[in-house]
C-alpha cells in the first residue's frame, strides 16, 4: 500500500512542476509591475518594486522560491500588493474557513441527495418517476448558474419573510461562528446544491443503470436476494468506485469552487480573495493561491487513487 501511495506521489511530481511553470508563465504575459504602476511607470519606481518583490531575479530562482513556499506551506513572506502590510499566509488563513463553511456542507448535501435520487430513478428505471426526474435534471442543467443565484437571493433572502418583517437569510456578507452559519451560509449552500443536482443525479443514475445490467446482479437475483439487497448491497458497493472518484475530483474545488457564490454573496472566502486579487492585479496573491489550489488538486487525486484501492480489491493488487 505504501509503495502504491509513493508511486502515485512520484507520478504527480512532473505534473505539478508543469502547472507551476504554466502558471508563472501565464501571469507574466502582461508585465505584472506595469499592471500595477500603469502604462508608463517611472523607471526608478519600477526597479524598486521589481527588486522588492524579487521579480528582477531569473525565472528559475522565482520558480524555486514558489515551489519552496508551497512545499513548506510557508507564505508568511509573500506580500500582497494591494492590501498594505498583509501577507498571503494571513489571507489564506482568514479565507479558508468561510470557503469550507459553504463548500463542505454543499458537497455532503449534494452527494447524499443526488445519490438517493439516482437510486430512486434507477430503481424505477423507464417508469414515469424516472422519466420525470431525468427531464427535470436536464432542464435544471440547462439554466445558468447565475440565474439560480440571482433568483435564490431574490426569493429567499429578499422576499421570504419580508411581509412579517423577518429575515431568514442574509442578502450577503459573512460572520464567523456556528450560530451565524444558517443566516449567512445556508442559502449559498442550498443554491450550490441545487445547481449541482442535475449533473450529479444524471451521472450517478448512469452509474447505477450500468451496474444494474451486470451479470453479478442476475446471479444475486438467482440466489434469492431481495430487490433492496441487490440495490443497496451488490450494486451500491460496485457503484462506489465511480461515485468516490466523482466526489474526490470535486474535493479540491471545495476550496475555490464556490468562487461565484462567494463573490455574489460577499463571503470572504478563498474564491473571492482570488477574484479580487485578479481584479486588482494583486500578482503574488493570484500566483500563490492558484499554486496552492493545484497542489490540493493533485493531493486529492492521489487520495482518490488510494480510496479506489480500498474499495476495489482488483486495484489493490495490480
Amino acid at each position: 500500500m505504501w509503495t502504491f501511495i509513493l508511486r502515485r506521489l512520484l507520478y504527480n511530481v512532473p505534473v505539478y512542476l508543469g502547472i507551476l511553470a504554466l502558471l508563472m508563465g501565464a501571469l507574466r504575459v502582461n508585465d505584472p509591475i506595469s499592471g500595477k504602476l500603469g502604462k508608463n511607470p517611472d523607471p526608478s519606481d519600477y526597479l524598486a518594486l521589481e527588486q522588492r518583490y524579487g521579480l528582477d531575479q531569473p525565472f528559475a530562482v522565482q520558480y524555486v522560491k514558489l515551489l519552496g513556499d508551497v512545499v513548506t506551506l510557508d507564505f508568511t513572506d509573500v506580500e500582497s500588493w494591494t492590501n498594505d502590510g498583509l501577507f498571503v499566509g494571513e489571507m489564506l488563513a482568514e479565507s479558508i474557513v468561510p470557503s469550507l463553511a459553504i463548500t463542505v456542507p454543499a458537497l455532503c448535501l449534494t452527494s447524499v441527495l443526488a445519490i438517493s435520487i439516482a437510486i430512486i430513478s434507477a430503481f424505477f428505471r423507464g417508469r414515469p418517476v424516472d422519466k420525470t426526474l431525468m427531464v427535470l435534471a436536464v432542464v435544471g442543467m440547462s439554466v445558468s448558474f447565475l440565474v439560480y443565484v440571482i433568483f435564490g437571493q431574490y426569493w429567499f433572502a429578499y422576499l421570504l419573510g419580508r411581509g412579517s418583517g423577518l429575515s431568514y437569510f442574509a442578502i450577503g456578507g459573512y460572520e464567523s461562528g456556528l450560530a451565524n452559519w444558517p443566516y449567512y451560509c445556508l442559502l449559498p449552500v442550498l443554491i450550490s446544491t441545487f445547481v449541482a443536482m442535475g449533473y450529479d443525479t444524471r451521472f450517478y443514475r448512469a452509474v447505477m443503470v450500468e451496474e444494474s445490467g451486470r451479470d453479478y446482479i442476475t446471479t444475486a437475483k438467482a440466489k434469492g436476494a431481495t430487490k433492496t439487497k441487490i440495490m443497496f448491497v451488490h450494486m451500491l458497493k460496485n457503484a462506489m468506485i465511480p461515485i468516490i472518484t466523482r466526489i474526490m475530483t470535486t474535493l479540491p474545488f471545495l476550496v475555490m469552487g464556490s468562487l461565484l457564490l462567494e463573490v455574489y454573496f460577499n463571503i470572504p472566502g478563498m474564491g473571492r480573495v482570488l477574484y479580487k486579487a485578479i481584479q486588482e492585479q494583486d500578482f503574488p496573491v493570484v500566483q500563490t493561491f492558484v499554486a496552492i489550489f493545484a497542489a490540493l488538486f493533485i493531493l486529492s487525486n492521489i487520495l482518490t487513487d488510494v480510496l479506489y484501492a480500498l474499495v476495489d480489491p482488483r486495484v489493490r493488487l495490480s
Binding site: 446471479t219 460496485n238 474499495v311
Partner: peptide, 8 residues
C-alpha cells in the same frame, strides 16, 4: 468471469 460480484 463476470457472474461473481467483484467487490465481495
Amino acid at each position: 468471469m463476470t457472474s461473481l460480484n467483484p467487490v465481495f
